[in-house]
Design a protein around this nucleic acid. Structure first.
Length: 558
RNA sequence: GUGCCCGUAGCUCAGUUGGAUAGAGCGUUAGCUUGCGGAGCUAAAGGUCGUACGUUCGAAUCGUAUCGGGCAUACCA
């Protein structure tokens, strides 16, 4: 069809002397034709003619390989035979169908899920993981090299808070879990806030003490710190493994503290940053239209987000030379990243920065209002979510006698897909029945379609025959859908719109289900059977590839 | 106050960058049925695209105003 687009482009240029971009769109159901083109309407005014007349003039110049009609307000509709579509797919098909090399030679960094070490993995880190991973896979499908980095929230203070709370609660170091640590952390933060409000600082001092002890190499502090970090990291790794997520690096905030502070000092001396009377350091961003300066260092000289992120950007630029850096972080931090990216420009970092933001996970309050899920209001822990999902899968697929691995694949498939149903900017209403959906537009629906195709191919394994003069009429809808895939993958790269891939996977799965209704395979004539197996094999590959871009695995059976 | 995001079917959401009669899923109703894997498929009902102007052949989409909701707005991470 690319060829035909070029022909239309040239015809328009020849007839009307203008260059108009030519795009094809699907034709609505119940209207004749497979592709529609709106150039005639775009041209009508310039040509001083009615759209229908323009359309007719263009059609007269087009090759006779397809049939054309003018419809509606002036669309040129192009009808293609099933056989021609088969020819197009056969020509385009190769080992990497759907992928492209537009990003060849370019390097991207995808930062996710950036979990906070102080608390257990919660649904709050679900979206960074799923979206960050999809970003990686989508860019790779477009030829990029992608480096993934888990920017762990491990900077200083949690240890002091943990150690103080741990001692106060008198817990056993050998039995303490991430959930105990999370409780300690939340309780301590609340107590410290109350303490500060009362004008006291005993707990804060104790926490600070522990940090100093750790820095001076105190034995107990070091043992506790190592133990806490191991508990937290083991937990994060265990959850990520269940979600089938991993990153190349785990360079946490603490890794960048000194580097960041040194850079702040350097830019302060260079006059890029300025120091307030209280000792805090800021970076003015007025020239970028941002009237809130970015705070680079606290008044007590301590690092904060901006400090470590500055160090991190510098590190990545020098070590990895990325063309693009993607931060998979929620919408709440949009303003922060606007500032950070302005800062990056100000200090002359060359890479393109992208805040891959997404909406909040909401829940319905007891009063019936929709609101963001938060620790205060009872956050859902990811391990509990996964356990719940697996339990539902086991109950619903009881007869299938699934392996543990397949149960995990289906459960995470459901959870991940639910993240991609809507545009990432749209918030998600947390509803277990929706997140664990096994029917309708869902991960398991798509996985099921894959497994079904795989079985059909297995049962017909080894069968071969010439296609003869088979017309591929029953396959038209499927072939049209398969031909959309490469352009879709390419179109989604810039804005990382994973939901479009998810929508496509659903449509393809649905198209296959419709297809089986009236196109028997095993019992068909040899040439028809062979042709249909050819189509099914390609549909399966495309669906697997689409789901893979979303990080969704295919179970062996279900 | 200012900035950003959003408002589409009972609910949750799409809507291919301005195109045809605004579409899915869930839910509701009615069909199909021992199938190469029916967790599916077919169909029906359900809409003043928050509201009002404007731009043009044409607006859910662009502009202005307005109402409603969410988030952010330097020493929390």
């Amino acid at each position: 069809m690319e060829n035909l687009k070029n022909i239309i482009f040239e015809v328009v240029k020849k007839l009307y002397g203008v260059e108009v971009p030519v795009e094809f769109a699907p034709v609505p159901a119940e209207i004749e034709g497979d592709y529609s083109c709106n150039v005639a309407m775009r041209l009508a005014r310039a040509a001083g003619k009615a759209p229908h007349e323009v359309a007719s003039e263009i059609i007269a110049e087009l090759p006779a390989d397809y049939s054309y009609s003018v419809a509606g307000p002036g669309f040129i509709n192009i009808a293609v035979s099933g056989k021609a579509l088969y020819g197009q797919l056969a020509d385009a098909w190769n080992e990497t169908y759907g992928y492209n090399q537009s990003g060849a030679g370019k390097v991207a960094v995808s930062e996710f899920p950036s979990t906070n070490m102080a608390k257990p993995y919660s649904v709050g880190h679900l979206r960074p993981g799923t979206q960050g991973w999809a970003a990686k896979r989508i860019l790779e499908a477009n030829g990029w090299k992608v480096i993934t980095d888990n920017h762990l929230g491990d900077a200083g203070t949690p240890f002091g808070i943990w150690a103080t709370g741990f001692k106060r609660a008198g817990l056993d170091i050998d039995k303490v879990t991430i959930y105990d640590l999370g409780e300690l952390y939340i309780q301590m933060k609340a107590d410290m806030k109350a303490e500060a409000a009362a004008g006291e600082h005993a707990l804060a001092d104790a926490a600070q003490d522990w940090l100093l002890k750790l820095e001076s190499g105190d034995e107990e502090a070091r043992t506790l710190s190592e133990r806490f970090n191991k508990i937290s990291l083991d937990h994060i790794h265990s959850v990520m493994k269940r979600m089938n997520l991993s990153t190349d690096y785990e360079l946490g905030e603490s890794f960048f503290v000194e580097r960041g502070k040194a850079l702040v000092k350097q830019y302060l001396e260079a006059g890029v940053f300025t120091q307030n009377d209280d000792g805090s350091v800021i970076c003015p961003l007025d020239e970028f239209g941002i009237d809130v300066p970015m705070l680079m260092l606290k008044s007590n000289g301590a690092a904060l987000y901006a400090t470590t992120d500055l160090g991190c950007m510098d590190y990545r630029a020098k070590e990895w030379h990325p063309d693009k850096v993607i931060y998979a972080v929620g919408a709440e931090q949009k303003f922060y990243f606007e500032q950070l990216f302005a800062l990056a420009k100000k200090i002359g970092l060359p890479q393109e920065n992208m805040h891959l933001w997404f909406g909040t996970i909401d829940q319905i309050s007891p009063e019936g209002k929709r609101e963001k899920m938060s620790s205060r209001k009872g956050v859902v822990l990811l391990e509990a979510l996964l356990d719940d999902a697996e339990k539902r899968v086991r109950e619903n697929f009881a007869e299938a006698e699934l392996t543990d691995e397949d149960v995990r694949r289906i459960a995470t498939g459901a959870i991940k897909y639910s993240d991609f149903i809507a545009d990432r900017k749209t918030g998600i209403l947390y509803d277990p029945d929706k997140i664990f959906a096994l029917t309708g537009q869902s991960g398991p629906f798509c996985q099921y379609a894959c497994v079904r195709m795989r079985r059909i191919l297995e049962k017909n394994a080894g069968f071969e025959a010439e296609f003869g003069d088979y017309d591929f009429a029953a396959e038209k809808a499927v072939l049209l859908k398969l031909l959309e895939f490469p352009a879709l993958v390419a179109s989604v790269a810039d804005n990382l719109e994973a939901h479009k891939i998810a929508g496509y996977c659903f449509e393809l799965a649905q198209e296959m289900n419709r297809y089986y209704e009236n196109a028997p395979i095993s019992t068909a004539l040899d040439n028809v059977r062979a042709a249909r197996l050819w189509v099914v094999a390609r549909a399966m590959t495309v669906l697997e590839r689409g789901l893979d871009l979303l990080g969704i695995e295919i179970p062996d059976k279900m």
